[in-house]
Design a protein around this nucleic acid. Structure first.
Lengths: 210, 210, 210, 210
DNA sequence: AATGAATGAGCGTTCATTCAT
DNA sequence: CATGAATGAACGCTCATTCAT
């Protein structure tokens, strides 16, 4: 399947709507209207509403593994630095693609679409496997002192904390009286806080000594 | 509004279906069939599908605040012990009511229903305020050494990590080859791991010294 | 499934439309409008458009076999008289239910719906088996002299001739200048002609001697 | 309108599809795919789907009248022999172009397209008029003893019997246990049987004495 | 002449809700 | 109180056709 600019445009609009209203709560008509294309084009371009979200997932997940691999395989970076880069990359990606990550989380909960579940499983597992390599590397080098590390629990801490922060931004703003902060500024503050917090969790959990 | 046994029965079935198929993916007919009541009864009892989920949220959140308050106000427990109890209570509650928490998370992401958003905001804020009290108490007593603690970030670590663990159980099973474990046994393992992990995050973040 | 008056009413209107426009050429909206019921009632009553035509076939074929059986098993009627009665009954039925027979012929040609094909096969074969009995009886009694009778070919002559006459009524009217005849009167003339003609085919083919 | 090889190719494919799925059940896309031409070409070549079937009918009916005329006007053949030739020609044509005849019968039943109805009426009437001539010739020569012959009823017997045999081939196979016969062999058997049977109907109806 | 992209209309179906009893 | 029947609105999708090139 060839992805054109129009495909990308429609996918972006669909992504926004899915994030706002959920998959079931978004109609093909909504997407067509938002993307300013004829209703029939959605089926014409993507086959069906279901295929559309599958392609959306495929598109968004493409490159993620490569990006992590690039970090993991970089010989000139020390293990914990690798993890720090991966954490920052993840935070950056989630904040830049908040819509997609909301959709992903929703799909993860509902587990209806087989294709998407398969995508996500493969993605998540390869993700974990790569991180696992870094952790093993760090342990071999004697950088990490803990020897009963649960990689997936650690990753879940990262993804859970980061994603819930994004999802709960409104509570955060209200609780910490950041009301006056602009959306972007709040994001900047949160990203910094998250970066420090998550890295700290990694450090403690791995037993990393500077 | 008077809640009868029939109401409760319908709400339970609705909760299961919402967790399995999402709010939009669940039809009133589905709920009526699952609860073995006449289709028209749903509207008759709850007014509408939307009112039903609102009542469901109200019901499920009732008592939660009280339970935390009971812990916080218990003079005979030390601050960090209070937090440990709250962590374990939360883990227990999420694992016991996985369906409801999935629905809640989904609603949190979609932010469509005003009433539910108001519920959740109030709930989350009072939750955070109570924890904040415990943290202040701990700092006054000199138990916690850190003085720039972000309560909400800490709580988000807890809720995010715990909920994502529940949502990602399948990946966990596959990655850690727990395939053979029964659902219940896996839950037991995960609860123990989470308890230790989250408490550790609290300890480190607060600067708690035993 | 319980068939109510409303079901019957809808089936009648659907039958007319199917006969006029074909199955694919008839929309559920057409049927709803013709039967003066809400569009959604069609699905509510019959499940789907396809189920509707299946029920229509089942309804219309019900009783046919019994009617033939009654004739075949009647001990007080001679073999050829039985065939004469069956011929007249068939002609009468086709002329009285022209719409249904048109729909049936169309379905027979397109052979799309599995359920309907099964109905028709069963119906046709039991029909032929019963007639075969009468022919064997006539031969045993020495009434029919021919001994290489192809029952199905004989029946196909009857059904083909009668149905094509109904379908080609307009040509008949034009060719024979019966233009001025009322629909009903033309039918009466045609039924008489067909009765004599088809019985004659039977007589000759079977070698029946008065 | 100029008919090119491409036109003919498309018409052939369309004919097959119409016979299999009906006119409404066949999409222009289906035809384009089957004929391996661009979708837009169908409208471009034929104007519309409706015009396409009209041209298909015109094409297929062309020559039919001429073929019958050739037989009727052949001075060296006796009247009943002429009818025998026409019967065999008809059987042969129907069996060779089963697809087209199914489509024709379907159209005859639905009577939607004015142009097609006009084609068929003209065709059928001229057909009957020619046969009528032969019958009159036979009566003048004293070959046919019956004087109240209904030409159209006789023709309808032929067309009805032959076409219904084609349409009901499956029943025929099942009832007569010809299951093992190849499609082509069954056709050969049926054509022989039909030829004898229909000629016999003609003989008896006309009062033909050898 | 030929075609990939696009379109308005309409399809069968399902929905949450309401009605009549 | 309770319910089977009914309904208007909207759903995802497909259609024959036309447009722009």
């Amino acid at each position: 399947m060839i992805i054109t600019d129009k495909h990308i445009h429609i996918l972006q609009k669909a992504e926004e709507l899915f994030a706002q209203n959920g998959y079931e709560g978004t109609t093909v008509r909504d997407i067509a209207t938002a993307a300013d294309v004829n209703l029939a084009m959605i089926s014409y371009y993507f086959g069906s509403k279901e295929k559309l979200i599958e392609i959306l997932f495929k598109e968004r997940m493409e490159g993620t593994k490569l990006r992590i691999e690039a970090v993991v395989n970089n010989q000139s970076i020390l293990p914990f630095q690798k993890l720090e880069i991966i954490v920052d990359q993840y935070i950056e990606r989630v904040f830049n693609s908040q819509n997609f990550f909301k959709v992903m989380l929703a799909q993860q909960m509902l587990q209806k679409n087989e294709v998407i579940i398969r995508f996500m499983t493969q993605y998540k597992l390869s993700y974990a496997t790569l991180i696992e390599e870094v952790i093993q590397e760090g342990r071999r080098l004697g950088h990490f002192s803990k020897d009963d590390i649960d990689t997936l629990l650690l990753l879940t801490s990262m993804t859970g904390t980061v994603m819930h922060t994004v999802v709960s931004k409104d509570y955060y703003r209200e609780f910490n009286k950041h009301n006056k902060l602009e959306e972007q500024d709040l994001d900047t503050v949160l990203k910094q806080k998250l970066s420090r917090h998550v890295k700290n969790i990694f450090k403690v959990t791995l037993g990393y000594e500077q």
